[in-house]
């Protein structure tokens, strides 16, 4: 019991470190998601409305990024690219996670656009709207709504992938927890009281708990957003 209290007290003292790690994780998630959103929309547009060549190019892009483990992508952008261009841990990780997310986001948006019947596009055109304005006024407002559940999912996946940035030394939640453990262990060894060292179980559970809280917050806010923009009475029918 004493050890348990000792652990909690120590964690409490080091909370600022964990919370600053959490802030980094949040920033990394948002940056990655925004990169993924911008690139993902472009990929979607060219895969649906592009020429044969651009369609194939976009397909290859998605295929390559989906087929590569994200940690390897982070290493490529940090160590590989680092020889020529030093992005720093944060932006290397954000670019890697963001581009990977763009491939998945593109898939979500494409599914949404294609699920809207072509008759609606024809109806927009037949009113005298241009192709672009039909996309903007008819297809896009529906595609965004249809994409929200998938986007929510993708958002939480990126959030839970942020500990991979630990691999290049970014102090996010997991690295912060690990640093706290290491500091305490060396202090315990120096003072000769190894039994008083922190229990890794408790530290990592705390890290997991922070992720879980973040997950809940984002999941519920994004779901609330989906509900707010839901089309009354609309169930997936074309």
């Amino acid at each position: 019991m004493e050890i348990f209290e000792h652990n909690l007290l120590f964690l409490f003292k080091n909370m600022p470190m964990l919370l600053s790690g959490a802030l980094t994780a949040i920033l990394l998630t948002f940056t990655s998601i925004i990169i993924g959103l911008v690139v993902g929309i472009m990929v979607t547009f060219f895969r649906i409305y592009g020429s044969k060549f651009t369609k194939k190019l976009m397909f290859a892009y998605e295929w390559l990024l989906k087929g590569t483990p994200p940690l390897i992508l982070i290493f490529i952008f940090y160590f590989g690219l680092g020889n020529y261009l030093n992005l720093g841990e944060f932006f290397a990780a954000a670019l890697a996670l963001g581009l990977r997310s763009s491939a998945y986001q593109a898939q979500i948006y494409r599914g949404a656009v294609l699920s809207i019947s072509t008759e609606q596009t024809e109806a927009g055109l037949s009113l005298g709207l241009s192709r672009f304005r039909t996309f903007y006024l008819v297809i896009l407002p529906q595609a965004i709504r249809l994409s929200l559940p998938g986007f929510t999912n993708e958002f939480t996946i990126v959030l839970k992938d942020t500990p991979l940035a630990y691999g290049v030394g970014l102090v996010e939640i997991l690295k912060a927890g690990r640093d706290i453990l290491a500091q305490q262990l060396s202090a315990a060894i120096v003072s000769g009281k190894v039994t008083a060292s922190l229990n890794p179980f408790i530290v990592y559970l705390t890290c997991a708990l922070i992720y879980f809280v973040l997950f809940e917050i984002f999941y519920y806010s994004l779901n609330a957003l989906s509900k707010k923009f839901q089309i009354p009475g609309f169930i997936f029918d074309k």
Binding site: I116, S117, E119, A123, P141, R145, I231, F234
Partner: peptide, 9 residues
Amino acid sequence: FQHFALFNH
């Protein structure tokens, strides 16, 4: 249109 093609939103 055959399937009405109303703008669902």
